[in-house]
Amino acid sequence: MRHLHVYILLAVAVLALAYAPRVNPYWMHVAIIAMFYGILASSWSLLAGYAGLFSLGHMAFASIGGYASALLVQWYGIPIPLGMAAGVALCCALGGLIGWVCLRMSGPYLAIFTLGFAEIVRITFSTEDDITAGMAGLHTEPLFRAATRLPYFYTAFGLLVVSLALMGAIVQSRWGLFLRAIREDEQAAAASGIDVARFRILAFAIASGFAGLAGGFYGHYIGILTPSLGGLDLMAVLVVMAVIGGMERLPTAVGGAFAVEFLLELLREYGQWRLPIFGVILLLTMRFARNGLLTPFWLHFVRLGGGARGAAAVVAPGRKDSRA
């Protein structure tokens, strides 16, 4: 059946939404956090997996988005969605700026640079405590004054779906093709007529905007922001999620985020051991299954519908090849 996989995904989504009110608050919280990570992992995959820009500053943008929104709401009393939008705009601008500054950096140098950026953001947020409340944590305005987490669940779900739809449209369009061409060979991409600088900046701006969106939502959901949101450890967790799932496709990156977040909760009794365990899983994945553990399943699943998702849709119009 054509597009069978799309119908299956839709059915699962409808079931999840319908079943949500009966989920206990604890697992609902886990699901909300998983969706938060889902936005981050997929936008990081857009940047690192598609464009090949291996940024270690992605969580810093989530942190900036979160703090910006929380502080704007606190100072000026603007509505929370407006604060979040301002956070997204700020992250887009800053992301574009970072993308511009590191235009000539490749591979490890870009990683070092963005790592430096993240550390400076973290140090500034924890040191300027008269503004950000430092390590004590900044109390934020809650998005909903509701007795249950249900509205947050629906909001997170909506944000994730919209983010994936937008990013999916980008990677399926010619922009996605250009980003992959830049990842493969910048010189050849330029010789083929791609404005490499423009697309590198664009990739940074877009991905950082989504990171800021996730961060803004997180801040107004969780109620308190600490500088560690932008720290190296959460960045590493994000890399674990995207790489384990498969960083070169948006759905597998989201799947990785879900899987890791739920496993982190299921393995709660192992306490501190969970992080090094996931470190080992990351290393094993890199060593033996570099395309990600979920990628083969996803490709299989897509084949159910006979589609060619994963390859940009602009590429094979008019022909129904099943290469994904």
Partner: peptide, 16 residues
Amino acid sequence: EYGLIVTFGLAFFLRN
């Protein structure tokens, strides 16, 4: 990319 992710992951593992 391999060297980067693996040493970054190793750092995460060792720290934790």
